[in-house]
Amino acid sequence: MTLPLFLELLVGGLVVGGLYALMAFSFSLILATTHVLNVAHGVFMVLGAAASTLLVRHLGLGVVPAFGLVAAGFLLVGMIFEAVLLKPMAGRASGEVLVSSILVTFGLALALEAMLGFYWARHVEPQPIFALHPRISSFALGDVVVSGPRATVLGIVAVVVGVLHLLLTRTRIGKEARAVAQNLAGALVIGLNPRRVSRAVLTIGIAAAALSGGLFVMAIPLNPFEGLRLTMIAFTVSAAGGVGNLPGALAAGIALGLAEVFTGFWAGPIWSPMMSLLVLFAVLLLRPAAILTGQGR
């Protein structure tokens, strides 16, 4: 393998991995603080991808303003999601919340997927594919040509991860979210309001999922029925990185992205999806308790 080829694969792996990290982190933050296992997480990504495609391809917006609109719009969707589906579970034992949230969000995922596919096929294009091809010129780094859209994706992912990190470590609500994730009993005793925290986390988490969906289709196209597959990847990366752990999700996401890209190059693209299953298998084998709580045995 030549060096430029290696570097090109490396950039590709970083792009995919950064996207995995972003979607996994919002998934795992929701799981850690609210005990909601959001099966619809990947579907919100696909919805974000669809909304971005609509704004850019059919309404002619630039990519960055479109992403801004998508993030803002899905803050609202996240608020509604929390108020309608999760409010009734507030105050229940965490095990009950976990089980009922799986059922509720699984139903929601199927319903949203079907609606999106139907709407798109009927009113936009008969063959729904969500993809963005912004004209951002590529540039050369030494011998390597870096594609403009990919570099943009990497840049935006880095900014969003940085913003999430600052939110969690510097703001009151972020510290409250970490406190709730670390010790719910302690958080309740000192008078933190768990509803306030779960409202904030779900709102921001859904918006981050939608935004990562928009970014995703700048690198890899999606169709309306890939949401549950994406949820599975988010679940895997969050379990491998530690539930609620931002650096962990980043490392696990990038590792998985690189593994997929290099496997795809050497063994053929049909082997790439096997990587995430291998990771999930390893986590289940080595630290089964970690998939829901972030703590090993």
């Binding site: 510290k175 970490r178 406190a179 670390q182 010790n183 009993a185 302690g186 958080a187 309740l188 005793v189 000192i190 008078g191 933190l192 309001n193």
Partner: peptide, 27 residues
């Protein structure tokens, strides 16, 4: 709810302390 009782002036130092182990003393 507890958070309203805290706002009313009640404080509890619970059995087992219930700290946030992964956060700093100041946090």
């Amino acid at each position: 709810p507890t958070h309203e009782r805290v706002a009313l002036g009640l404080g509890l130092v619970p059995e087992g302390r219930e700290l946030f182990p992964g956060m700093t003393v100041e946090e």
